[in-house]
Structure formats: structure tokens, C-alpha cells
Nucleic acid binder design. Structure first.
Lengths: 344, 344
DNA sequence: TTGTAAGCGTTATCAT
DNA sequence: ATGATAACGCTTACAA
């Protein structure tokens, strides 16, 4: 039963027990590559540490090394499973490297304020996703290694999903099925990822020679209730679209709910496609057709990129290959039915 | 533009600028209540700090005070919105008190290992929810302030929801509607909260003089896919129940999905009630009848209790009043229909 | 009222 | 190969 006392075991305790100096203990235990310690001594130290139940004080280590071995992850909404997965993905790779992750969202605070708190904790870096990093005050992140997700930047390196393709895939799927009366629901935002999804969608429409009446472009927060409201507004219109692309699955599920509640047959009368492919997308009924984006992989990539920086490697801000996305056909899309929707 | 250099501003820098000693700066800036500093000096220090953009190094402070001002929260699965909300609730109150929260789940690690990592980070305390704290090795949490959620313990203080009532409420609702062929889907677990939900349910059945055939008691992981599988098994039985209580909403939503997929009319042929009332419960179709438990409040209470301990107050392990729960009637429950289900 | 100094648990640079 | 020793940035007696 190691460490009966209340005071945590320190290198001094280990040193005393092993009959060596504290410095030697540190050499052995800190994994210093250039540590030249006699085999026998090392053994003795290791044993003593084991026996006493020694665990290094990461704070103390951080103090002298000037790092905290912790990073922050800032997302708009942890309640959105997509962002949660980004965090989870990052957490897994950071944990392996011995880093802690401080996740936080900006629902009840501003990104700047959040960054502020993170810096007070001396985090070594941050991963920023979906909060419009470009608009951040320059000094909010000085002294910090940064990786941005889904947002090109010449200040910081970043990782991205192929958001443009996501929007295009959605549009092409609907177009191929024969839809011509297309609507879009998405947030009014400066968040690059969302803008690209939107742009991809509209470009594909344009390429197909299709225009979208302005009342079929609905702005709404990227949440379930946002999607719900937007769909209700859409359904109240004199002319209804035959299909709608939602900028994320939360919106799509809210929209689906609203449509179902209004007794609109999905997908017969109206097709819906989402984006993200969160778990719930295949739990709702009918199951949501959506564009799959691997949030965990995105988070993992961001973490690896951040790690490279933290380890002192120079990392270019030049964007790498975006994470591929793919359409997942499920139950909320079908060819438009004769006699329903917009007849031009 | 404060702090152009790369080196973070320290109390020394502030001291130099203000023309006082570093110790005085500390007195002013550390919020020491017994600090006796001349008004003029204090002003000068504050100004200098402001001008330089000083921010205290929480790690260094922690090192001398012997605390890290960080806590851990351990839950089984952050992907479950219920647990996420517990974390969020805790995070809000901890943040106000200047504490960071390190959330983590035990999907890919054991609680012990996780606690281990947390201790290495010198967290000051942990909130443990849903991972069977009772079974934790005693020394995994020595030196740590602990609050357990939904688990009575004479070692640690805790907060709890009224899980017993949750199960009972579900049963009574079904019973009142006239159901007699009742099934249960829940995890095989030693997690107290789940056991109580189950016990509350079965007690109410017993009080009503109703027994449940053993094949209608399905054990499954508390996840969507777990619920899905369990429901499929239930539907494959020669005799089907007319209603089923699921130990949480994830199970319930999986079960609902499976039933719908099998063309079982919900709620006409089969009633389903869940537990937790996560956001998605009212997004699926039909909307899930469930028992509402305020996860955020639970997390907030746990945090406040932990805070009290961290501030040195003795906190008894005696359980307080459990967080009340309430039934939310929605679309997945209805009286049993003649001619369907178990006719005894 | 202010400054000096010790020390928190480490790491890392030296002599030895 | 090992042990003093000086940081790291801060708090907190204690001395002036």
C-alpha cells in the first residue's frame, strides 16, 4: 500500500529511498534521451519510484519546460455531435502524446473570451473549429500554436473537409433524381465550412442551369430548432420546393421533424438531404440522406498537425488535401412525384 | 499592442514597470484577502499589469498552492447527450469558480486508467458518473476530492436523480393506460442509477401484481444499437409485449427504430418509454415518451458539491434530496389495442 | 506598507 | 556516472 501519507510522493522521496540525488531521479524518470545513468542506479530509482507510487507532477514539469502539455479545442456547440466527434478525435491522439484536452464551446461566451481562459491556463495550443477564426483579434492567440479546422488561413495551418464537394454531392444527388425545385436551409454565418457547403450546392445548381427563388433560401441557426422553424416557413409558402438541402444534420433533422409534423410525406412529397452524417441521422425515420464527413478523423488530423507544431517542427499554413466526403443515400430522398411541388 | 516579445509577461516584469517588488505585485494580483497594500501602490501595479497585458500563470500558482484548479469528470460515454449535459452543467459552475474541467469517458479505457491520467495532471477533484465508482480501487482516488453522481456511497458525497421514481413513473404510466404485457430493456450493469431505474419499474409492476416473463427482460448495452438489437430480439418472440420501458433514451430510440423498421405501428401496436429526455427524444417520430431528468442540473449540483470540498469545507457523504424527475408524455405511448400483443 | 527570501516539484546545466 | 545548483512564476511568511 504505497503512499499512506497525504503528501504526494516527489522525486525527493524517491531519491531518499533509492539513496541517490534528486537530480538523478529526475534524469531517470523524465525520459531525458541524453540521460547517462548507470544501469544499476536506474533500476534502483525505478524500483523506489514504483514502491512509493511516485507520479510526476505535470504542473511542475510544465513550469520549468514552459509548457503545460494541455491544449484547448474551441467549437461553437459541443451539443452538436459532429463537433463532439471532432473533439473526441483530437482527444484520442493528444492523449497518446501525453496532452490533456480542454474542450469548450462558444454558446455562452465569445471565442475571444474562451481563448483568454485557455491562455490563462497556459495551454500550448488550440484547435479552432467553426467559430470564424479569421475574425479573431490578433492578440487573442499570440504565443499560441493554432490549427484551424475547415477554414483556410495564411496565418495558421489547418485541416479541412471537402465542404465544397459536400454541397455539390447533395445537389447532384437531388438533380439526378429529377428535382428542379430546390431549396436550401443554412446559417447566416461567416464560418467558412458552412459557406463552402452552400457554395458547392449553388454552383452545382448553376451548372445545371437552375436558379433558386430567394424565398427558398432560408437562413437559420444550425440547430434542430433552427431547421424546424425554417421548414415551417418553407411549408407556409404558396409554392413549395420538392427537395431541400440542409447545411448540417441538425438542421435537416429539425426540418424533417417539421415536415412530418405537417403531414408532408417524406420523401414522396419532399426530399431532404443533410450534411455530416451524425449517428442520429440513421435513427430518425425515415433515415436521413446525408453527406458523410468523418468528424473524428478531422479532429485527429488537426491534433496531429498541432502536435507537429508543438514538437517544434515548422508547419506550413498551406492547406493539405481535404478530407474526402461521400453521399449516403438513405430514406429522405426520392425522385419528385408528379403533381407535387413546384411545377415552374 | 502589449507584449510584443515572445516571452510571456511575469510578475517580475510588472514589478519592474511599476517600480515595486515582485512580491508586492503578487500581493495585489493574487487577490489575497489579507493583502495590505497602499492604495497608490495597488493602482500603479494594476496599471502596469494592464499595460503589459499580464496574465497570471495558473500552473505556477497551482504549484505553490498545491492545487491545479482543474477537475476531471468521468462518464461512461460522452456521446450520450445525457452525460454530455452533466459535463456541461458541471463545466459552467466550475468555470465561474476559475476551474478547468477535463472531461473524459471510459469507452476506450478503464475508469482506473482514466483516473490515473487525471491524477498525473494534479486535478484537485473528480466528478464520477455512471461508471460504478463503488468498484474503483481504493487508491485510484486517494488524495482526490470526489463527488459521485447517481450512486450512494459512504466514502464520498454525491448527488443523485430520483432514479427509482423514474422507473416507477414509467411503469405507472404504462399501467394506467391499461398495459399488462410489459417488457424491459436495460444494460447488465452495476451502475447504480440504471439499477434503480430498473428497480423502480419492477417494484411498480409488482405492486400491480404483474410479473414479467423472463424473455421480456432484455439485457443490452445502453446505446442506440443496443436498443435496436434488443427490440429485434423482442419482436422475434412468439409472444410480444404491448409496451416496453427502456433504461435510457438511447436504448429507446434504437428500439423505436427497430420496431418501425419491422413495420410495428408505434404506439398502436407497441408503446415505448425511455428515460433521460435528451433533445433527440422529441425529434424522432413519433416523439418519445420519456422521463425527464435534468442532466445539466445534476452536473451543476455535483460541481457545487465538489467546489465546497475544494474550498475546504467538510461535506458529508450523506445523500441529499434527489433531483426530481417527471414523466413526459409524447407520441410513443398509447393504450394497448384489442387484438394485439399478449393476451395472457 | 513594502521588500527579502524561501520554497512549490520539476528539468537541465554544469562541476565533480 | 552522479550530484550540486540554478531556474520556472508564483505565493506567503517574515523582516525591514
Amino acid at each position: 500500500m504505497p503512499n499512506q501519507s497525504l503528501r504526494p510522493v516527489t522525486t525527493h522521496d524517491v531519491a531518499r529511498k533509492a539513496g541517490v540525488s534528486q537530480a538523478t531521479v529526475s534524469q531517470v524518470l523524465s525520459g531525458n534521451p541524453r540521460a547517462r545513468v548507470a544501469r544499476a542506479t536506474r533500476e534502483r530509482v525505478l524500483e523506489a519510484a514504483e514502491a512509493l507510487g511516485y507520479r510526476p507532477n505535470i504542473l511542475a514539469r510544465g513550469l520549468v519546460r514552459g509548457r503545460s502539455y494541455a491544449i484547448g479545442v474551441v467549437v461553437p456547440d459541443l451539443t452538436n455531435p459532429f463537433y463532439l466527434d471532432v473533439v473526441t478525435g483530437a482527444q484520442r491522439v493528444m492523449a497518446e502524446a501525453g496532452y490533456a484536452v480542454l474542450p469548450g464551446d462558444t454558446r455562452e461566451t465569445t471565442p475571444s473570451r474562451h481563448l483568454e481562459a485557455l491562455r490563462a491556463r497556459q495551454v500550448d495550443g488550440v484547435i479552432i473549429d467553426g467559430v470564424g477564426a479569421a475574425a479573431l483579434p490578433h492578440d487573442a492567440i499570440s504565443e499560441l500554436k493554432v490549427v484551424v479546422v475547415d477554414e483556410p488561413s495564411e496565418r495558421w495551418p489547418g485541416v479541412a473537409s471537402d465542404a465544397l464537394a459536400a454541397g455539390r454531392l447533395a445537389a447532384e444527388h437531388l438533380l439526378e433524381m429529377g428535382h428542379r425545385g430546390l431549396a436550401f436551409i443554412g446559417p447566416a454565418t461567416d464560418v467558412h465550412g458552412f459557406r463552402m457547403r452552400e457554395r458547392g450546392f449553388f454552383r452545382a445548381l448553376k451548372d445545371a442551369g437552375i436558379a433558386l427563388p430567394h424565398e427558398w433560401l432560408r437562413r437559420t441557426p444550425p440547430t434542430v430548432s433552427g431547421g424546424h422553424k425554417a421548414m415551417r416557413a418553407l411549408l407556409a409558402l404558396p409554392r413549395r420546393p420538392t427537395a431541400v438541402f440542409c447545411a448540417n444534420d441538425l438542421i435537416a433533422m429539425g426540418a424533417l421533424k417539421a415536415a412530418l409534423t405537417a403531414n408532408v410525406a417524406i420523401p414522396r412529397e419532399l426530399s431532404i438531404v443533410g450534411c455530416d452524417d451524425v449517428e442520429m441521422a440513421s435513427v430518425v425515420t425515415p433515415e436521413l440522406t446525408t453527406v458523410h464527413i468523418s468528424a473524428r478523423e478531422l479532429g485527429a488530423r488537426a491534433a496531429r498537425l498541432l502536435l507537429r507544431q508543438l514538437e517544434g517542427q515548422e508547419v506550413s499554413a498551406k492547406p493539405g488535401k481535404p478530407l474526402p466526403v461521400r453521399l449516403v443515400r438513405r430514406g429522405t430522398t426520392a425522385p419528385p412525384t408528379e403533381g407535387t411541388g413546384d411545377r415552374g
